[in-house]
Each structure stands twice: as structure tokens, then as C-alpha cells.
Amino acid sequence: MSAPQMPVGMIEQVAGKGAARAARRRRGMDQGIRRPGWLTYLMLAVILVICAFPLYYAFLLASTNATYIAQNPIPSLIPQGQFLENVVRVLSADIKFWQAVINSVIVAVTTSISVVFFATLAGFSFAKLRFRGRNGLLAFVIGTMAVPTQLGIIPLFIVMAQLGWVGNLLSVIVPAMVTAFGVFWMTQYLSEALPYELIEAARVDGCSMIRTFWHVALPAARPAAAMLALFTFVASWTNFFWPFVVLGSSNPTLPVALQLLQGTYFKDMALIMAGVVLATIPLLVLFVVAGRHLVSGIMAGAVKG
């Protein structure tokens, strides 16, 4: 019945005409749905201020000094002039800051790519392929998330020591290469966003399973994959305890290095907050650069049923 339509959708997905299609749809929608009123924007503005304030508060504290912070529970909403000074103090502190940044980038990028690939592969299988034990195995995957991670530290450390990876970035990368969370997320997304007709069409065309995955599932998964990549990146970027135990301060990731700013008897909140801001800036930059694609990826949406 709808055979003539389906390949079009498929080709558009694969050939990346998503943007054009989205634009078409948006134009169509613009006529259909009117723009929301000022109340909506006011609500959004309030939400945004709430979202941004704690970070701005951190920046405000980072632009002062410890004495000012102690004397003023409500800091001036205008930043004071000592931000750069505090940043310089963070950068010149004995914490291997730049090595930590590089390590964090390597770990975050590798795990993001790897998680997206393996999770989409498994998600495609769980969501769209029928096989014996599927439900049981999926439940098992979800169940693995319920294991409290703190306790796994000791046995995991034993594994890493056996592999000789202690102190090596591999010890942080490999355990995070595919996550139950990612598999679950991709399964849920693809089960809704990828119509069976598309797979069917590809199969009728004689595509092998892996080609079907490449040409149909992966493109359909793009918006969710973009989000998964971001989630993985952020999770990896902010992870503290395991890297602290297995890498230590000699080959640190960023949170491990920044934690050392608290390693003085006197806790200089201005310095610590400058560290907080510095650690967050790379993510914000990534966010501004990739976020546009990410969010428009979400907007482009999946194939419409």
C-alpha cells in the first residue's frame, strides 16, 4: 500500500535531505500553528534564568576573593574584577591542568563515539529484530543499571590491575565503551522512531542486516544518537571517583585535577569556583558549537510514521 512512499523517506534519511525536509515541514507548520504569545517567552525566560543562575553565581564568586565571599552572602550581581587573576591561579597551581584537559577530551570523545555505535547497534537489535530471549536479555540489560556502582570499584580495580591498565587512560575508557543506559535509550527511541516498513523495504532490496543497520537504522537514530553522544560526553567529563582511584593525580582527568584545589587546609572558595567555571567552560563551548547541531538534530526528528 504505502510502498511507493516508504523509499522516499528512506532515501531522504540516508541522503541527508533531512534539513530540506525539516525546512519544508517547518514552513508547512508555520502556516498551521501560529507563533506562541509573550507569556510563553516570559515563562521560558524565567526557566532560563533559574537554569543559568547557579553557574552565574559560581562565576560571581570566582570574580571575587575569599574574604569578599565570607563577608557578602549575597554577592553583587555585577562581577568583580578578580576573575582572570583567579583563573591564572588555577592554571598555575600544581595540578597538571592542561594534561587533565587533554586526558578528559580523549576519554570523553572516545567513549562517546564508542557508546553511540555499540548502543545503536544493540538498540536496533532489541527494538526491531525478533530473536529468542529478547525480552529477557533486555530486562537483564536494564537490571545491570540497578547495581550500585560504588561497590564495583574494588573488583573492577582488580580487573584493571590484572590487565596492567592502572594509571592508563584505557582503564577509564574501556569500562565505559558501551553502557546499559545507552542500549536502553536507543532501544526505546528506535522502537518508536524507526518504522518496520523501512527495514522491510531495505530487506526486500536485498540488504544484509548490517547494511540495513547502516542505511536505515543509523540515520533514523541520528537525533537520539546525538543526544546520547552528548550525555556520554558529559558523564565522562564529570566522572570523579573511578578516575581518581584508577588514574590518580599523576595522570588525571579534569575533575581529579580540580579536586586538588581543595587540597589545602584553607579552602579558598574564589579559587575553587574559578576551577568550577574553568571546568565547565569547555562543555559550554562544545555546547554552543555542537549544541546547535544537536538540538536541530532533535528538531529534524525521525521518520514520521
Binding site: 594534561q99 580523549i106 572516545t110 587512560l169 584505557l170 565503551m177 595522570n251
Partner: peptide
Amino acid sequence: PAPTDTGAA
């Protein structure tokens, strides 16, 4: 993805 191992002391 080939895990690139760098930075490890």
C-alpha cells in the same frame, strides 16, 4: 573506534 592511548605516563 580504535582507542587512542596517549597521555598515560
